[in-house]
Design a protein around this nucleic acid. Structure first.
Ligand SMILES: [Zn+2]
Ligand SMILES: [Zn+2]
Ligand SMILES: [Zn+2]
Ligand SMILES: [Zn+2]
Lengths: 140, 140
DNA sequence: CTTGAAGCTATAGTGGCTGTAGGTTGTATC
DNA sequence: GATACAACCTACAGCCACTATAGCTTCAAG
């Protein structure tokens, strides 16, 4: 039978077979054609769409955002506003997370430094430092 | 009845009541005493331990790591090695995530810049840029 | 025509909670 | 002592984005 099998799509895109079926259940991929025996067969359009989904996932978009982006692709006229907003929101989110992680990193470096680890038999001050938010230099 | 109610622990630590019960189920908190009617009553030791858990969570440790840290606190002799390792592993993890997020940020900035958004009626190039990993400047 | 890889559905599990339903208990006020 | 009501209880379902398992069927090569 003609068309791409689910395994071929998986190999081409790096998305696991089970995940492709999951995307179908979530409505990100259309119900594909089936062979007489019930196996899925895809065309190139589905392959392209799955590649898009895979790449957007790698860039950290969640499935709802991806669904929105796909809907925008389908609209005959361009809707720059929405697409730009979704991408910019994602940038803001990433920057927030980076800022937060940097604060955490600084606190943890401080925590590790708090104990020299030399005094065997003495309690580890790392554990005290972990318990004590008072000693933290930033909110987190 | 004497002792702190679960609601009081919640207020003191900022951990939701349902979450405290969840921690108990996960074995992070001991089975507390109960009133005649079956409500939980805690002592100061449990309050301290919950504060420790809450703070370690804020610093991004997962519950398994926290369980390990608590076990270390209970050991009579200090085990610096394990505590330091857990904290250092966490730092490494955070640094990896920051590096990854920075790569994503750079790609997304490039994606957003790829379309000036002026050409209404023309398809949004953000969508093309999102589809195209070839154009990406780094792995992600 | 046989074999075995690849496909199918359905269901449960992951982490770290959150939310809901439907009932019981503790405490303050009268 | 009665009443009201917040706080508590258990048990279970749901969240996200998958992943894993079990038990079965189909496809394609030799
Ligand atoms: Zn130490
Ligand atoms: Zn802190
Ligand atoms: Zn645009
Ligand atoms: Zn890319």
């Amino acid at each position: 039978m003609q068309g791409h099998s689910i395994g071929l799509l998986s190999k081409r895109t790096g998305v696991k077979v089970t995940t492709i079926r999951y995307y179908e259940g979530r409505g990100l991929l259309p119900d594909p054609g089936r062979t007489g025996g019930g196996q899925r067969r895809y065309g190139d359009a589905e392959l392209d769409r799955l590649s898009f989904i895979a790449h957007a996932r790698q860039l950290g978009f969640d499935l709802d955002a991806i669904a929105e982006l796909i809907a925008l692709q389908e609209t005959p006229h361009a809707a720059h506003g929405d697409a730009h907003r979704i991408a910019k929101d994602r940038i803001i989110e990433i920057r927030d997370r980076i800022a937060r992680l940097r604060r955490l990193e600084a606190e943890l470096v401080r925590v590790v430094k708090s104990c020299d680890g030399q005094s065997d038999g003495q309690p580890c001050r790392v554990l005290n430092a972990l318990a004590d938010h008072q000693a933290c230099e930033s909110e987190h």
